[in-house]
């Protein structure tokens, strides 16, 4: 029940900054600048500080290590862009790709813009939010993660946001994101997105535990 749960889950869930950051990581390719930040020692310290938990720390370290040690430093940006396109922009198709859309996992025939999109749009509208541009449908993993960040930040003060947060997790992310993470792990040849997906998995496992603890 929303009123009772305001404090408990808030005390047991990951820092929303991680969701906001992962949303950015899954919505667009890395640049020299973003990779530079990931390689900076302060980032590792900040991550450790925010993570709190060992499993998550370990997975964050793994991702930062991958970012810091590319196979070909000169072409790192291009190679990661190609890996990104292979996984998330359809270049890898159904054998090598990882569609970042919930509809593909829960709707008919791998189609886009199915029920999951409509439900996500309702959640966004209810929260007074909308897509900054309409390039991607509302059931893109990045949209769901950014909404989760926003709702997490507001859940303590806003019973509606707390309820929507549970809906977003129970009816969406915790339904399909596992398969998304599995596919990233199995299909990403760069190692970078596989590592990022493992960070996401650790966060969602924490969310699942927190939900069950309610």
């Amino acid at each position: 029940m929303p009123t009772e749960s305001l404090d408990k889950p808030a005390a047991a869930v990951p820092d929303p900054a991680f969701y906001q950051w992962l949303a950015g990581l899954f919505i667009r390719e890395q640049t020299a600048e973003t990779l530079g930040v990931l390689k900076a020692p302060e980032t590792r310290r900040e991550f450790h500080d925010l993570a709190g938990e060992d499993v998550l720390r370990g997975r964050l370290d793994r991702l930062l290590d991958v970012a810091a040690n590319p196979a070909d430093p000169e072409d790192q940006v291009l190679d990661l862009a190609s890996a990104y396109a292979l996984l998330f922009l359809g270049v890898g198709g159904s054998r090598e790709g990882v569609p970042p859309y919930e509809s593909v996992y829960t709707g008919p025939d791998g189609r886009l813009y199915q029920e999951a999109t409509a439900e996500m749009e309702t959640l966004l509208k209810d929260q007074g939010l909308w897509l900054a541009d309409r390039r991607e449908p509302a059931d893109h993993i990045a949209v769901e993660l950014e909404l989760l960040a926003q709702l997490t930040a507001r859940a303590a003060d806003d019973a509606g946001a707390a309820a929507r947060r549970r809906t977003l997790l129970a009816d969406h992310l915790l339904v399909w994101a596992w398969e998304f993470c599995d596919l990233c792990r199995d299909r990403d040849r760069s190692g970078f997105y596989a590592a990022a997906a493992e960070v996401l998995r650790a966060l969602l496992e924490a969310e699942e535990r927190a939900l069950k603890a309610l």
Partner: peptide, 25 residues
Amino acid sequence: SVLKGLTALGAGTLLVPSVLRQAYA
């Protein structure tokens, strides 16, 4: 951590631009 953490992660470089905006239209 919510407010500071968002900016601390690479002074925002890792975070912008956002995929969401205020208000549905």
